[in-house]
Design a protein around this nucleic acid. Structure first.
Lengths: 194, 194
DNA sequence: GTCTATATCAAGATAGAC
DNA sequence: GTCTATCTTGATATAGAC
């Protein structure tokens, strides 16, 4: 990890963000020091401040970029069948939760570590993402394809259920990802009466 | 909050635990200082060390007591109908999640802040609680009353779904607790094919 | 049992040399 | 762009008086 002097600006920025994301997710924002992040990257602590105004901005940028990635990655097709749209959401959310586990975790857990204005901005992005699922449920109920008493409650319930996969799933274990799609898909379709 | 000298040992202990639980849940273990806890109680920081060996022991005791409370409070009746047992679990877990929201939150979020031995001890208690639900699902599948492909996965999925109620529910809002029982109960029964 | 005072250490952040 | 050095603050924990 020792580093002699020399400019590597093109890669240091992403390395800082990767290290911060991983450490924040593992130990919590408050528990991680700027010195720890710097050590993981292989630079001195002072160097971090060439890339971020302060620790708070580093967290806010990570969360903001993660939510933006989510919103831009997910493509719903309102013209498709509701059950197909629902299955697509399940797969997308499981994939995201596993492929960007740290980002997902931070977006739900470290909102409380943000300043009020940062909090409001990120929470609004998260709400937009949640609305994507709620739209599917609303359309399904309107079309008589789904039976859901309260689509807002069901949205929160299903997202919590799917995100929870990160609490226990370990790749290389008993189940592969296709099995996750199947099992979680069956639970979700059953829950909403598809 | 100012406090003159004087002994109030009988109430100071519980007050410290209440304050620590609340502050840890709101801001995270690492983000809360012993001074903050002391201020919330109305004593000086040094006084806390008459009640706990250190900050780590304070967290471990909170989590241990919470899991013990859960395990002792929940009464399953293996002789009852599976759907009745399942409904009882849903009500119990929602009640617990709302009435002991801080303890529930800490038990899932701050395991990572425990030393390895404390972590193992608390995680084992949590696993025992999870097994309570899994037993119901296993019995239901064996009896042909439920359709669940993987009861371990379903257990983790349903607990995550129910615990998630704390993320959005606010008492006095649009829904009362009976509505929560109904809506979450319907989602759960649908998910497991009851 | 509680307070005051303090020892010790580590945190976030900045300044200036290279 | 990065390093070294440092300022300032606040953290956990302890010692001893009341």
């Amino acid at each position: 990890m020792a580093r002699t002097q020399g400019s590597r600006a093109d890669i240091t920025g992403p390395l800082i963000r990767d290290a911060a994301r991983s450490l924040f997710a593992r130990h919590g924002y408050a528990a991680v020091s700027m010195r720890q992040i710097a050590q993981a990257v292989g630079v001195q602590a002072g160097t971090l401040y060439a890339y971020t105004a302060d620790k708070q901005a580093l967290l806010a940028d990570l969360l903001s970029d993660h939510m933006t990635l989510l919103l831009e990655s997910w493509q719903d097709d309102p013209a498709a069948a509701v059950t197909a749209r629902l299955d697509a959401f399940v797969r997308f959310h499981i994939d995201t939760s596993l492929d960007h586990a740290d980002g997902v975790f931070l977006s739900y857990m470290e909102l409380r570590s943000l300043t009020p204005d940062n909090h409001a901005r990120i929470a609004a992005l998260r709400r937009r993402y949640e609305n994507g699922l709620q739209n599917i449920l609303d359309d399904g109920v309107a079309a008589g394809v789904l039976r859901v008493d309260d689509t807002r409650l069901a949205t929160m319930a299903l997202i919590a259920m799917l995100t929870g996969v990160t609490n226990w799933y370990r790749s290389g274990g008993r189940l592969d990802r296709q099995a996750l799609y199947r099992h979680y898909g069956a639970l979700v379709r059953g829950a909403v009466g598809a």
